[in-house]
Amino acid sequence: MNSQTTSPAQSPLRGLAKDWSSDKDAFKNVSWGKTMMWIFLLSDTFIFSCFLVGYMSVRMTSTVDWPIPSEVFALTIGGHHIPLVLIAIMTFILITSSGTMAMAVNYGYRRQRKKAAILMLVTAFFGVCFVGMQAFEWTKLIVEEGVRPWGNPMGAAQFGAAFFMITGFHGFHVSIGVIYLLIVALKVLRGDYEERGYEIVEITGLYWHFVDLVWVFIFAFFYLW
């Protein structure tokens, strides 16, 4: 533990009790900006949880068979029928972007601002790729498969509503994240944070990793289940 205020001899539990009982200063050396980003992400966790629990409810209550995601999201590439291939690629792209973001945070703290900014721009580029592939997926589903929020030819009518709501809200988060990344990256490149330090890169990173985190759950519950 990075306990600057409690001695290392103290047990972690005692440190926890001390931090919480110290009035206004519960989070010690955690900055206000980072704390607030975490609180925002916590609230966002609840929003996505509500969507996923709602999806669970409609899928469990439906007496009609749920469309098989493995089939719905299969693509035929070069004559081969590969299940879920686009979703798998999207997953790898998002994980890669998380990796480049983590590196950006690291270079930010090392005060190599050019490298940090370039890595953030690379992260934003992967984000754009992800949203682009999602747009392709939506188009294919709407135009070719005839999926609508109120029904679809493959099975339970609620499939479309759950799909568009959950992936749409996630895609919206990625898009906002790309804009956020671009703004911060340009400011980093310009040297706006030379005096204040580069914690802003870490805070931006928290948001971006969260978007990746949500995708882990969507991938498991919506596409694989």
């Binding site: 990075n2 440190g15 931090d19 989070f27 990793h209 985190l213």
Partner: peptide
């Protein structure tokens, strides 16, 4: 999810007070 939160989001290096709150 655990790896992302713990390492990429630096949760294992944060104080337990923040970790429990989140």
């Amino acid at each position: 999810a655990g790896l992302i939160v713990a390492v990429f989001m630096h949760m294992i290096w944060e104080r337990i007070a923040l970790l429990t709150a989140i």
